[in-house]
Design a protein around this nucleic acid. Structure first.
Length: 159
DNA sequence: TTAGGTAGTCTCG
DNA sequence: CGAGACTACCTAA
């Protein structure tokens, strides 16, 4: 949810417009915006870098991001998001796998993934259930899941 | 297939 | 603060 945010950039992508929020030279949030959202060019260097790397990822599925990130979250969420960043493009991990690495539980990991403010860059789409696709951005069906499937297919991961 | 377990966060009061 | 409810789950039977 993010109704009326002011974005440092709104860029086009194969998944529709993406809103980019940066603060103090670091990337803070990425939102999937409605199809009819007007684009706007990067307003600062951080947004420009993020936009460039996102475009590169969409053209080159194996690309891994290198950006200063400052996602807001609890200490536990931060630790989960750090784990997610260790997953290489084209690979997946299960919620349980991440949970064991943090000595936590699978549902807690799912909760933290749901709270990820930096989709695509922090690759929560690479986290799937032991038997099933899991969810995306809080939903287990609909457009969010289409986005998750698109990202996995983009990286060559079969459904 | 389901029943129960689990960890973190949110919501009331 | 405390109790309970709510999850993008997992395992055993």
């Amino acid at each position: 949810m993010s109704a009326h945010s002011n974005y440092q950039a709104i860029i086009a992508s194969p998944l529709g417009p993406l809103g980019i929020v940066s603060r103090n030279e670091a990337l803070c949030r990425i939102d999937f915006l409605p199809e009819d959202t007007a684009l706007s060019p990067p307003a600062d260097a951080a947004a420009r870098r993020a936009a460039a790397q996102l475009r590169r990822y969409f053209g080159e599925p194996g690309w891994s991001f290198s950006l200063p990130l400052r996602p807001a979250g609890t200490p536990f969420q931060q630790s989960v998001w750090r784990q997610l960043q260790q997953i290489p493009a084209g690979q997946t991990r299960s919620y349980g796998h991440i949970a064991r690495a943090l000595d936590s539980g699978p549902r807690a990991v799912g909760n933290a993934c749901r709270a990820n403010p930096l989709p695509i860059v922090i690759p929560c789409h690479r986290v799937v259930a032991a038997n099933g696709p899991g969810g995306y951005a809080g939903r287990t069906e609909g457009r969010n899941m289409e986005i998750k499937r698109w990202l996995l297919a983009h990286e060559g991961i079969a459904p």
